[in-house]
Design a protein around this nucleic acid. Sequence first.
DNA 1: TTGAAAGCGCTAACAA
DNA 2: TTGTTAGCGCTTTCAA
Lengths: 327, 327
Amino acid sequence: MKEIKKSVTMKDVARLAGVGVGTVSRVVNGFKVKESTFQKVQTAIAELDYKPDEYARGLKTNRSNNIAIILPTIWHPFFSEFAYYVEKNLSQKNYKLFICNVESDASTEIEYIEMLKNNKVDGIIGITYSDIDNYISSNLPFVSIDRHFSENVSYVTSDNYAGGQLAAEVLIEKGCQHFAFIGGKNIYKNETNFRKEGFYDVLEKEGKNFSKLVLPEPIEDLEGKIEMFILEHPKIDGIFAVNDFMAISVMKVMQKLGKFAPKDYQIIGFDGLKSAIDQDYYVSSIKQSTDLLAKSAVDSLLSLIDGHQPDSRIVLPVSFVDGGTTR
Amino acid sequence: MKEIKKSVTMKDVARLAGVGVGTVSRVVNGFKVKESTFQKVQTAIAELDYKPDEYARGLKTNRSNNIAIILPTIWHPFFSEFAYYVEKNLSQKNYKLFICNVESDASTEIEYIEMLKNNKVDGIIGITYSDIDNYISSNLPFVSIDRHFSENVSYVTSDNYAGGQLAAEVLIEKGCQHFAFIGGKNIYKNETNFRKEGFYDVLEKEGKNFSKLVLPEPIEDLEGKIEMFILEHPKIDGIFAVNDFMAISVMKVMQKLGKFAPKDYQIIGFDGLKSAIDQDYYVSSIKQSTDLLAKSAVDSLLSLIDGHQPDSRIVLPVSFVDGGTTR
DNA sequence: TTGAAAGCGCTAACAA
DNA sequence: TTGTTAGCGCTTTCAA
């Protein structure tokens, strides 16, 4: 027989403390009451191990202290690092975090958003690469990462353009002669497209020659295409990949061709990924400060929730990290 | 001026459909009503775009359809893969998932658990390596991963012992002669300790000689200690590491000493990690079927929530995967 | 099959 | 400073 412990309510506390429920509510919510009453109520709360019911409170206040994060998949070091920092920031402010894996599927995204509306999440942080502009109601605070929606939606992003520039500068400084950009291209516009722009611009300004391989997503036979590209441009010795995983794919192909970084060529990715906090970088990379990204997203969202209108666009600096694939 | 859209309630629907709120509730919850009333109500719901308020419902029913997962950190491929599958299973059954990073800090864990109690999560899945037995109340359905708590808490785990055996068998079959186990040891007992037991037992039965390096956690100067161990046992050519990240550390040390896998030695990790679903294994490994682990945990938890008493211990099979560090 | 109404535990307005 | 009370939106019993 399972013992069902009836949960203790404010009324119980009020009765034990010999005060009204309003007073208990005041104590719980930190409003001013007479010191002696405060003590009585606290004692009763402790005695009964009273915990306020967040659902009753939410029903009344229309607030839940819940935030949702929508992302393609948590099983990816960039997203899990980001989610890690988001949760960390949020829990400090007493918010909880729902996680929603949408797998780059727009209909799943919409389902989630609809679902979240009923559940009174106070806001959403979205890393989403599909076309859901219409479903982001202005009623629900929403902060987007890396992607610009309509005018009203604020977003935070790394300085992708400067990152591309930095990649070019580093590669030049480290003595490369023949450059290449390798990346994919999503049908929906997002900020990561600026990475290559920055890269191209610096190289052009410096009068360097370079090749590019830009593959429309979804990419089939990625490694085959990279291999073909490399074989067509055998002199390449300085590669900038749109992200770290792309850099890894490139390195696999190069290895197959008997070339190793940083001996035979140098390569820089983007993101600055690590598998986990205490692991090494996968490759030399332009690192996004994920922690800052998360903090900014959280701050924006919370101020949106408080009814303020924060900066609608926040751009964060990036930096170069040596992951052993540059000299 | 921000337009505050007052949310539509059951009462609105009832009024428009010309029925009572009870009837609307019945329709929403799938109870039997007359076909014609059903239609009227559905029409009204669609017309008003009515969404039930989960908080009012939760207040009434004491259910939230929220589950929490407590883990050291989501920023780790094992945990993020696991959380990925947990969320996937859960969302199919209309549950949402809170994520709680506790950073191996027992007091944070306790705080989270206390917090979750107020929030009416329907249950918790915990991957936790600290001592929180006392805080798991029997009122709150709890399923533990890899760790056995008191009698009443059900847990699911991979067959760590069989995994250790398998590692030994594979290494023997692939021709290794001098074996070693390298791993850490947590002060709290958990199932991963069985990995080495299985490994030892097979080697002993086969009359093979082997060395062991078992470091109490937290480990300081891990690589230094590994290096010392390797230098003391230079003939080692078959290593079983307690997990994939440990294997990676070992490989770094070996590389420093000029030895490469699988040419100069072979190494097998445990977990079968990938950074992301479409990435390669880090190393040859004894793979846990994370998806099954997640599914079992979810099934157990949901049946616990439904008041059943599922198997209190579920042990799942493991398999060997070739990650290029064995021949 | 249905409507009316009580009440879940809380907050906040009002009155004392 | 405090107690009392209405009511948030829903489910569920009871009576019709």
